[in-house]
Design a binder for these strands. Structure first.
Lengths: 188, 188
DNA sequence: CTCATTTTTTAACATTTGTAAAATGTTGCG
DNA sequence: CGCAACATTTTACAAATGTTAAAAAATGAG
């Protein structure tokens, strides 16, 4: 299990001692494509690391779902509001392929944060990395047109383009599927 | 100084001991309206808490500035990329009024994180709160039209509407100033 | 207070994106 | 295979937002 963790970017900075403590609380699980592992409007008590597979986070709108995040191998999956505020979250997380995950109870993770400063700093850095990535996306959306955002998405996430339905990518990019089709047609 | 810190929401959870340690590294400063306290493309070595005043963070585009964040009393101001990755940042932070701030050297803050677990958890929670707020804005932008975003901004930030130029609010909301004017005209 | 500067609003027109519906393409299962 | 379900593209039209320019209003320095 420790060797598994060492292969995941988020965990490479941890000492063997912390990895050992952490691994005692980890349970590997597998789920099929289509499984919703995080549900909106629920306090979700688990934190997952995606070992293999693809996932998306989305919110349910009136007549549409809006995908705002994709996860790949090495991504961490959790309900932000459950993790941060112990309140029901706003996002669903769906596995888009049959996937392998590592599962940790939030309570166990928080205990580690309280008594192991290295883990507390790990949690801080994880939140910071997610923060800077999220803010970049917010800014990018303001500066760049939909076409440019699509080109960058293709360049940065070639795997996702191949494996994820375009309707999800369209909503991730903040346009309708019709607009994405037009962009793709124009760039041939 | 400790009493000052206790009045700031971010610091209310800290023990007197941590507040004491922290306050040894804090320098109160005042700056005039228009001062840029965080510069893009520079590693900014200070972390600020806004005691009194208003600030905005913006990125410089080709023929426009895009404001993507406002700070008020109690907000924390820092270059995300300097703080998180020790790299030059992408944002400028400008004081929109004469302001009082508390100034802390990043290096001092990081030392506290390393040897004081309570401070490490404080840093974690701060990043988490910024993260959840940023993600909510990203999602809101996808779900809500510009008019609705404006109404919510008015409801949630009545102070900012009074004190901040509409051109900055327009770019914060992701529309041109002309569009914001139309929205305001329609909602009378 | 007055003038110069900046901010905000309004107008006319262009462009982008959205909506709805039909056509085409793809996938998986019996 | 062949059908059914789902995904993607295309078309025609509608709505929202952008661009440019000018007028009106507000602000601030002297």
């Amino acid at each position: 299990m420790i060797e598994k963790l060492k292969n995941i970017a988020f965990f490479t900075s941890l000492s063997d001692n912390s990895l050992h403590e952490l691994s005692a609380h980890i349970e590997p699980v597998k789920h099929k494509k289509g499984t919703i592992i995080i549900h909106a409007d629920k306090v979700e008590p688990y934190f997952y690391v995606l070992e293999k597979g693809i996932a998306r986070a989305y919110c349910e709108g009136e007549n549409q779902q809006i995908t705002f995040w994709f996860g790949q191998s090495g991504s961490v999956l959790f309900s932000f509001n459950s993790y941060i505020n112990n309140r029901p979250g706003y996002e669903n997380i769906e596995l888009l392929e049959n996937s392998s995950l590592l599962k940790i109870k939030l309570g166990d993770l928080f205990s580690l944060y309280e008594h192991n400063p290295e883990m507390a700093n790990w949690g801080r850095k994880m939140a910071e990395q997610e923060l800077i990535a999220t803010e970049r996306r917010l800014i990018d959306r303001a500066f760049k047109g939909a076409a440019e955002r699509y080109q960058e998405f293709v360049a940065q996430s070639p795997e996702l383009i191949k494996r994820v339905a375009l309707k999800h990518i369209a909503s991730y990019l903040g346009v309708t599927q019709v607009t994405l089709s037009r962009i793709r047609a124009a760039s041939k």
